[in-house]
């Protein structure tokens, strides 16, 4: 199984573990991740205004590159996944944006949203299959009580992201079960971590994190996992009273597969 892979800038710097463990695990699972050549930063946030074309172009380039290779585009960072998926949706369904973006890019063949954008977790669920993943686990994380923190970007808006039930998701819990640990469902798992507001208003971000941590601790989580470097930062650096260890899900995956 070969995928085009879009790592994104954070995975090359502050979130190297997220990337490294994903690659090792993929290898163990027989999935080939071919990093796109010359990818550029996706912009980290999806530009919502209709007239924002230029800020979407780097995403379109990545999508078109995957199309050329006739591969699905694999993502790992929640923010990159969000931006690529939504821009792809625009290229498919928004004629205005599609025309303008193609006019700018002057590709050999116009890009019209042909590429499938697949998150690493979706790849585990749909391509590998959680049952097969379970079989591949050599070091089940028995007895560990793990809370899945989804955040916003993977789930919403559900009409476009189509990742899971946005209000009651189960994919990461299913993942946790597959690697042999016990998932702890807590209500605030799809709340916002505070996001980029941490740059401007640390107190506001701390408030968000507290609420999430409270909820996770109360429901019995002993550690949290996430797919998003920004969630990781906020949960880790801006947690005030309760502090649970937070890890990237790929790290636990690698651990379970014995490739850490």
């Amino acid at each position: 199984m070969n995928f085009s892979y879009y790592p994104g800038c954070t995975l090359k710097t502050k979130a190297k573990e997220l990337d490294m463990y994903a690659r090792k695990s993929a290898e163990a699972l027989g999935v080939t991740m071919e990093e796109l050549e010359n990818w550029q930063c996706c912009g980290a946030v999806y530009p919502m205004a209709e007239d924002e074309i230029a800020t979407k172009l780097s995403a379109v380039r990545a999508l078109a590159a995957a199309k050329e290779k006739k591969q699905d585009l694999l993502t790992l960072c929640s923010a990159c996944h969000h931006v690529l998926k939504r821009v792809n949706d625009d290229m498919k369904n928004n004629e205005y944006i599609r025309t303008r973006a193609n006019n700018y890019l002057k590709l050999d063949e116009a890009y019209e949203g042909e590429t499938n954008v697949v998150h690493y977790l979706e790849m585990l669920r749909d391509t590998v299959g959680f049952d097969n993943l379970k079989k591949a686990v050599v070091n089940p994380l028995k007895g560990r009580k793990i809370g899945a923190f989804y955040g916003c970007l993977l789930l919403r808006p559900s009409g476009v992201m189509a990742f899971d039930n946005a209000e009651n998701p189960t994919i990461i819990e299913d993942f946790i079960k597959a690697i042999g640990a016990t998932p702890v469902v807590f209500p605030c798992r799809n709340e916002c971590c505070g996001g980029y507001i941490a740059m401007d208003d640390k107190a506001a971000a701390q408030k968000q994190v507290e609420r999430i941590m409270d909820s996770a601790v109360e429901h019995g989580a002993e550690e949290l996992i996430t797919a998003c470097p920004l969630c990781m930062y906020n949960l880790d650096a801006n947690a005030t009273c309760h502090k649970l260890p937070v890890r990237y899900f790929t790290e636990l995956l690698a651990e379970a597969l014995g490739v850490k």
Partner: peptide, 12 residues
């Protein structure tokens, strides 16, 4: 610890 993602997001 601040990740690139936060910087880019905030700037955007």
């Amino acid at each position: 610890k601040i990740p690139q993602q936060a910087l880019v997001s905030a700037m955007r």
